[in-house]
Design a protein around this nucleic acid. Sequence first.
DNA 1: TTGTACGCGTTATCAG
DNA 2: CTGATAACGCGTACAA
Lengths: 332, 332
Amino acid sequence: MSIAEVARRAGTSVATVSRVFNNPGIVNAQTCSTVLRAAHELGYVPNSSARTLRTRRNKVLGVMLPTLANPVFAQCLQGIAEEAETRGYAIVLTTTEYSPEREAAAAERLLNAGVEGLILVVSNPATSQVLQRTQQTKLPYVLAYNQAQEHTCISVDNHGAIFQLIQRLHAAGHQRIGMVTGQLHASDRAQQRCKGYVEGMQAQNLSPLPVWELPFAEQALEQLQQDLMEATRPTALVCSNDVIAIRSIRAATLAGLRIPQDLCVVGFDGIGLGRDLTPSLASITQPNEAIGQQCVALLCNALTDGIPLLPSHSVQLPYGWRAGESCSPLPL
Amino acid sequence: MSIAEVARRAGTSVATVSRVFNNPGIVNAQTCSTVLRAAHELGYVPNSSARTLRTRRNKVLGVMLPTLANPVFAQCLQGIAEEAETRGYAIVLTTTEYSPEREAAAAERLLNAGVEGLILVVSNPATSQVLQRTQQTKLPYVLAYNQAQEHTCISVDNHGAIFQLIQRLHAAGHQRIGMVTGQLHASDRAQQRCKGYVEGMQAQNLSPLPVWELPFAEQALEQLQQDLMEATRPTALVCSNDVIAIRSIRAATLAGLRIPQDLCVVGFDGIGLGRDLTPSLASITQPNEAIGQQCVALLCNALTDGIPLLPSHSVQLPYGWRAGESCSPLPL
DNA sequence: TTGTACGCGTTATCAG
DNA sequence: CTGATAACGCGTACAA
């Protein structure tokens, strides 16, 4: 099952067999088909380790995600896996659970695994040690979801999406609009979305409310619930992601509010499950699979062309809008 | 950065360096630490391709999952990734979207990737071509979630879980209990759970209702919705997984029913998101991460010990119960 | 257009 | 306990 056996059977040298597989153009069509037939009959499949040893390319991509518990990343990974598969790349996966400490260790493991390139979702590109470390290694990498001038990113316009949403909510008559987010330090996206909220409110001459920041705790939700029982409660809640939105709906319902009559709730991400909920979840959608696919595509192209990946290769994909029962119809 | 450089710096032979990394026990403690230091100073990291070429072991596991859109499998994958990581294994992932055709192709790709072992979730172990093909190759494999005598499986007692649930529902006063499932042919678990339903009902001297089988279509849900408006509608709905349960809650709500006063709904899987829903989702829980971890553990142990994986190595993990607002409290 | 021969970095065998 | 050395399977100068 090695190249030598194929060569023997085809009556050629190993070099020719190798060429047939790597550069068919430069070999006689006749010999080529002879070799191919021999290879097929023997069920020959090239040994990737040997090839890697020689070429120093192993066709493995490293993927670092915050968690798989949030369907956004699961969906993205699906896109990554798909595209990687068609391109013949394997992936090694690691999750950080949104912890900066785990991030560093996780990245180190990917590096040690000898990956050719990296797809990363970091908590904050501006402060991430992972990115410094990665840049040292000269390995090509692309950030998914993160948005930062200095890096190659596949993302959506987080700021603009929320900014525009505020405008639409206002147009629909909402004045008191609140924002709920996960832990801000764990996610630059959340920060950008919050910024979009504040500036969006100001642009509408509305005063932004203090942002609800929900750490992953029961307690925080109860606070939100309390606040929603005040007379000055908002009439619409913008959430920095769909999971937060689902939790917010829970808090609101426990506070005795009806969705969307008393309170409109909008999420961000467009996870598939949102459609099946009751009420169905209104959300700013991201093309999650496509984000994953593009990451792989960019990386693989850079790898095969041997050109370095630059910030200018960043792609900003369009976000969308999924209407849902958790929010009354919005103009536009 | 190769073993030779380390040897030179440590003043030993390459063989010794190799031993230090692979079998430290048989080398002099003194030399050992010298080598280790040299290696560390040089930032030496063993080349996995060369090692693989020599040992014919690449430390890559193949994982075949139905989809990542269902959080159950995302959670399981998280467990797999974690355990694989700690054991120094990489994984190559592929999804089948519950399609038997895609299953065969997906498995073939994993095989071609040269994986050392496989973790599979197949639609039906009894009819799966994938398993035949896998057995031909003599590669060790373990089935996750699937339950079958002839294979090595990590699963829960699907039949028993539902059987017991029916008993509890009956004890709580329910007489008309219905069952909702996804496409039966796409999942042996669903079949086993339905069997548990039918036999559980009979054991309680209740007559089982025709099972609602929901293909992935809008239409099917509407049928359920219609049926739930009949006078003879069930008072409790057992669902073969949490996603189905979420959809059923939607159908019931659209039918004008209140959950759980008019209709109790119970899911299966215990996906994390279930806790955050309103009403929160009552569910029979599976230890999803643990299932993934055990698959990896079993596989890796078999791989390192060189012993074949037998059906007798199967593990049946305990299922649990998560109370939730979608179902009134149940005895036991 | 094809063949020969070397080296990629390791591990395993066999002497010492 | 340690060292020399032959593979492992492949790609690629270089020569023909």
